[in-house]
Every structure is written in structure tokens, then in C-alpha cells.
Design a protein around this nucleic acid. Sequence first.
DNA 1: CTGAAAGCGCTAACAT
DNA 2: ATGTTAGCGCTTTCAG
Lengths: 340, 340
Amino acid sequence: MGRRRPDTPTLEEVAARAGVGRGTVSRVVNNAAGVKESTRRAVREAIAELGYVPNLAARSLAGRRADAVALAMTERDWRLFGEPFFAETVHSVGDALAETGVQLLLTLIRTDDERKRFVEYARGGRVDGVLLVSVRADDPLPDMLAEARLPTVLLGRRSGAERVAYVDADNTGGARDAVAHLLGRGRTAIAAITGPLDMYVAQCRLNGYREALERAGLGGGPSWTAEGDFTEASGRRAMAELLARHPDVDAVLAASDTTAAGALTALREAGRRVPEDVAVIGFDDFPLARDTVPQLTTVRQPMAEMGRAMVRLLLAETDEHRAGSRHVVLPTELVIRESA
Amino acid sequence: MGRRRPDTPTLEEVAARAGVGRGTVSRVVNNAAGVKESTRRAVREAIAELGYVPNLAARSLAGRRADAVALAMTERDWRLFGEPFFAETVHSVGDALAETGVQLLLTLIRTDDERKRFVEYARGGRVDGVLLVSVRADDPLPDMLAEARLPTVLLGRRSGAERVAYVDADNTGGARDAVAHLLGRGRTAIAAITGPLDMYVAQCRLNGYREALERAGLGGGPSWTAEGDFTEASGRRAMAELLARHPDVDAVLAASDTTAAGALTALREAGRRVPEDVAVIGFDDFPLARDTVPQLTTVRQPMAEMGRAMVRLLLAETDEHRAGSRHVVLPTELVIRESA
DNA sequence: CTGAAAGCGCTAACAT
DNA sequence: ATGTTAGCGCTTTCAG
């Protein structure tokens, strides 16, 4: 056996010190019912005196939870790291987890090798489950995890027929509402800057955009959309393209806050006024964007609820409760700041 | 005991299937020497057939490494998440770790409660060590970890008398070189936008700036410096302040790439030309900034080496090798793109 | 309400 | 070269 840390007291030592059995100490540590208050206090005292901290490896091994969940993201989405969407996701999941005493572990997966290693890590019992953020439709990771029978929850579906548990917003409805709003304000030359079209979320928003236009008998055609990747730079580039193709554009639906910010820059560079001349609506509505472009109309995703829902689904899978549906779609909300 | 996963084979089952003892299987799994090639192959086969994956909790408990290290960051530095510096750090640490088969876990620590929980998690034996990024001078976390005798390595010192193992760049020297370069180009009205002055890295860069000026007999005075926080927004604001105080400024040393980008924006807004009119030097030199402001002169930190050094120090502490110094200061390098 | 005892799956020493 | 054995520290029945 490897060296032990002689400065790390064990449950047994606490028990000896408190003059009780190990089982009792275990019960106290885990806040289990059925321990006389005086005993409980004595044990607590011994714990404090010895500076006892439970060995988590032993605890996992003995069969309880790992008390940790992983939030994994793949390399292609690495830039999400800098996006408010990701920051907000981590925050909301962290908040939801805080109450449960579960440690949140972020992992970045870049190569297939790392993908494999991560699955082994997870299968090894070091996490209770895995949260996956905005996975590409062709990413094998969710299936690898499912095959390993690991509780998994996706933020964002990979397709309309997603079988892994997921939490998503009503992207189609949100886009439809946004375009309907613009139409209601008299805009008719409405363009769209999409997200990466190999992501279902981007397809949904594009569909919502098209549906709203079709209902108004205004089919836009492919030249009215440009693909971006949620970043500001892509929004700027896409807007420039759209302006070149359609100088008469009078409104734009952008894939995200950040994309919208990029679009605004391009519009200003082209000497267009926002929103008088061209109205812009973006998805997300994060504080960052709100500060930067206060006049922006946005479609809000209920981030806090999404985090809560993800954690709820994951814990349900962990407990094998199967409590309710494994799929959650939350409503979006149009946030109007200024007449568009 | 809680439910076991009947679909998760154990070492023992592999041993039975391969017709060998558990010890042999363990040796094969851990690539230990001293196993006949034919046996090794037989065991590998059994492993594949059963889909065996080692239980990491059991492995840790039995005394070996946790095969994971945590990279922790505190809430105040949350915005670093979006900064290339942080992304680059994670990448370089990830690369250095990839060769060793150790899982990198990122953890965000927001409250004192989470700080405590994280220390318990780490003390619980779930990580071999902790990497800390740009800690504030007054953060208790490093000391909490040291007290728990957990291998810890800081990226960036908290002070000149740092006792915890660290990796840092020669910030004073880098700033001095940068200012010397500017002086050599005939610039004399040189301002500085610093990082948060409760961070040692910011103090060092400020000192380097002052030293270089003093050597040239050009003491700047406090009105020539403005404090930022490494973000672009702070750089823009600080530059505006400096311009208001000293319209005759002809060069600026910025705390980071990103800060420099903000300063450039402010300069452009004020109608100044860069670098003809005002030369700007930023720290870091990341691809992002290079793309955005190609004419920027920068002081480069050797990120890849920093990652390697952090991992090396951490593993040395883990192995109790105490191989060499626990403190590493790497040289910076002035990257000149255009005459300043 | 509490103590004793049986593992959890693995590693590392010790035999063979 | 390989099998056997003794724990690692904890949770959880099962008796008292």
C-alpha cells in the first residue's frame, strides 16, 4: 500500500475519540436520523477536534453517490467559454447544485482521445452524471455516455428525435414571435443571421423565422439568411454580407446577443441607424449585451430554470426515479426595449 | 450497500474469465512490467469481452493517485473565463496533462461556502493536486489548501514572498523591456494602464514600467498611470482618462492584450493614430489580439511552458519528489510587429 | 438508539 | 511470472 497521510484522521479515529462506534459517526456525518442529540454533539466535537474530513473515495466505493457532476463541453464550442451563454449556464447549474452539496466539475474535451478518457473517468464512478452543453448533431459523446448507462442531460437537443434526456428552450416559437413582432411593426424586409446549421438550435430558430414569414405570405428565400457561429465576429461578417445582398433590409433576427452586437457594428459601419432604419432582434438577453446595446430587442431564454431543470433531470436519473418526463422544453419570452 | 450496477464487471470477474489471479489483471491494466506476453494478451481479451472499466474510487482508495487535478478559479476572476489568457492556460495545462493520463477538472469558486466545499472535495482525495489561476493577494484559498497539505501550484504569485509553489513570468523585466523599447524609439510621454493593483502581477508590471522610466530620468508620476482589470472595457475607460489628463501622451503600456485593444478603441475615438501618434504595447500576445490589432507590439508570456511547468511542479509535489525548486519564473519576450 | 461486521473493487506486499 | 492476502475508509444491514 502507498503511503497514508498520517495527518488525515479516519472515521474510526473519530469514533474512538467520541467513544462510539463507527456506524454512529457515519450517521452523524451524513445527517441521518436516529441519533440521540447528546451523542450527536459528542461526535461533532470529536470531528472538530480532529479536523476530520470524510474520504470521498471510500464513500463512493462504499456505494453512495460521487457527489459530483461533470459539465462537459467539446472543443468546437470552446469559444462558448467566452460567451455569456456559457457563463450563465455554469452559473445557473452551479446555483441549482449549491443546495444539494454536489461539486460541479467542468471538463473540456478536445480530442477523441480525451473523449474516451472522459467516459472512462465518468464510468469509473467519479461523477454521478454528465451535463452536456450544445452538442453538435454528429458528436458521438452522448451515445458513448448512454451506452455506458451514465445519467446524462443535454442542454439543447441534437435533433427533433433526441432520445437522451434534455432541456431546451422553445427556439422555434421564440423566433416566430420575434419575426411576428417585427411584421407587426411594419417591417417586411427581414433577414436572419443563423447559428451553425449543424446545431438543432440554429435550425429551429431558422424554421421559426421562415414559418412566421410564410404565414405572412412573405417567403424570404435563402439570400435573406447568412450563417454565423454565435460569435460577434461572425455576426458582423454575416450582416455585411446581407447588406451587400439586400441594401433594403429593414430588420434582422440574430442568432444570439453576441451575434446581434456584431450585426449592429456592421450596420453602423454601413451608416445605417438602429433601430430606426434597421431593427435588430437577438436571442438570449444577457446582462452583457443589455449593457452594450440597450436598445436591442431580444428573445430571452429562462437560464435559471434551465439550470434547475437540468439538475433535476440528472438527479432523477441518478436516483432512478424516472420522475416525470425526461425532456423539458421551456418557453422563451420576447423582451421589447424599444419600438422596432 | 447501495445497488450495484450489475453491468459493471470487476477486476475479479476479468481474472476469472482470463483464468488468472487478480494481481495479474491489475498489472496488465496498469501496464506494469513482469507479465508474460501471452498472459497479457489473454487478460486484454477478457477485458475487451467484458467491457471492463476500472473503478476509480476503488483505485484511489487503495492508495494510488486520483488521476485528476483541479484548476480552480475564484469568482472575481470569472471574467477571465472570456479572456484569452485563461483559455490559453487551460489549453497549455491540458496539453501538458494529456501525456500523463490525468483528467483536468475546472472548478469555479464563487462563495466562501463553495471555497470550503472545494477544499473538502480536494481533501477527500478526489484530486491529486490543485492549480490556482491568478489569485488575489487576500484570497484564503491557497492557505486553506496548504493547511490541508494538498499539492498546490499557483499561476502567478500573490507577493514577492510567495511560499506556495508557483509559476510566473518575469513581469517586471517584461514591462521594463517594453518601456526601454519605447524610450529607444524616442517616446518620452509614456503612460501605463495597470491591472488590478491588488494582484502582484499588476504591481510587478507597474514597477518595471517605473524602473525603466527612472533609469532614463523620466519619473512619470501617478497621473500617468490608470488602473484597469485586464478587460477591454477597462482599457478603454483608462485610456480615456489618461488622454484627458495628458493629451500629449505618445505611448502606453497596457496590462494585457485585451486592455490594449480597449485602449486602441479609446485612442481611435479621440482621433489619435496608432502607432504613429501614440504607440501601444500590451502584455500577453495571444492569437485573438493578434488578429484584431495586428500592429500591436506585445510582451509575450511563454504560455505553453507555463502549463508544462505547473504540471511538473504539481506532479513533483504529488510524488513528494521535491525535485528542484518549487518556484519557476519564466522569461518574457518582447514581440515587435511595427516601429513604435 | 447504537455497536459489530460484511463488504465496495482495487493495489501492493508477500508468497510461491 | 503469477496467485494469494491484507487492507484502503466508508456505508449499511443486522443484532442487540
